[in-house]
């Protein structure tokens, strides 16, 4: 092992995270090489300085009190049932969304089912924007993505071509909510990423467009023909509305042409 190789391993060496073989080789080198040995001592002193300085932030008492007072979400069984009264509480969601300035949930506010769902959707959206996470299947072709979704989760969202109206189809992704997998469809408008999450709803009733804001993202949600749709992006209110409308309109156009009804209307 030469000095360059040894230098690269000094950090994991000091943590005892090398394989026994590597460990022995570094150790041997340090016995023979004054410069690397000096480097290793310097690393140790930096590590000592960090761990001995009073750098640890203990949780303040106020946080402990807040935690103990936090009302926790109902478990999954309850969650499924509460989805049914979702529309009735639409007014409350907007209130909660607006008052939770940082998107945080406070113990005083009882979060609604949609609000909880919105948090999960936004989490998925943000995760998708991390490096190499946007799509599992990159394609501009509706048909390609349609078959890919069918194969992966047994259903596919409607995938209209929206390029005429300024939204480029980018690809598809599989995501998960606590209960079930969801299809994530990605469109781009300039540098804005629009994610549409769809899954088969647990009721066949149509639900009108609902607007939510969560952690600075705009969400649009509706239900049609047994499919639940959630659109999330950093587009502004007007553009978010427009996207939802355009998506719906173009979906209706392609529905009879490309999809058998059984593909779309699948109900669990």
């Amino acid at each position: 092992m030469n000095c360059r190789e040894v230098r690269q391993l000094l950090s994991p060496y000091s943590d005892g995270e090398l394989t026994p073989d590597q460990d022995a080789k570094v150790e041997q080198h340090l016995l023979e090489c004054e410069e690397c040995s000096q480097q290793e001592k310097s690393l140790q002193s930096v590590r000592m300085a960090i761990s001995s300085a009073a750098l640890y932030y203990e949780a303040p008492a106020s946080l402990r009190q807040r935690i103990e007072a936090t009302r926790l979400p109902i478990d999954r069984g309850g969650f499924r049932i509460s989805l049914q009264w979702v529309t009735a509480a639409a007014g409350v969601f907007l209130l909660v969304g607006a008052s939770a300035a940082l998107g945080m949930l406070w113990p005083e506010q009882k979060p609604t089912a949609d609000d909880e769902l919105a948090h999960l959707i936004v989490a998925n959206h943000m995760r998708s924007m991390q490096v190499d996470h946007l799509t599992d299947k990159e394609s501009h072709e509706s048909q390609t993505l349609l078959s890919w979704f069918q194969k992966k989760i047994g259903f596919s969202p409607l995938i209209p071509d929206l390029s005429q109206v300024g939204y480029e189809l980018t690809g598809g992704r599989l995501d998960y909510l606590p209960d079930h997998p969801v299809a994530g469809l990605v469109y781009n408008r300039g540098s804005h990423v629009v994610n549409i999450f769809t899954w088969t709803a647990n009721s066949f009733e149509d639900k009108p467009l609902t607007r939510l804001v969560c952690q600075g993202f705009r969400l649009r949600h509706w239900q049609r023909l047994g499919m639940s749709y959630w659109v999330v992006s950093d587009l502004n209110d007007q553009e978010s509305d427009k996207f939802a409308k355009v998506y719906e309109r173009y979906s209706r156009k392609i529905l009879p042409l490309r999809l058998r009804s059984s593909d779309v209307f699948k109900i669990p």
Binding site: Y57, L63, I67, T70, L72, P73, M104, L105, A123
Partner: peptide, 17 residues
Amino acid sequence: SEDIVQEAFYRAARYFR
């Protein structure tokens, strides 16, 4: 940080299973 930990506590409960 306080808000974040509280939020995480809440979220973790969702995924506790």
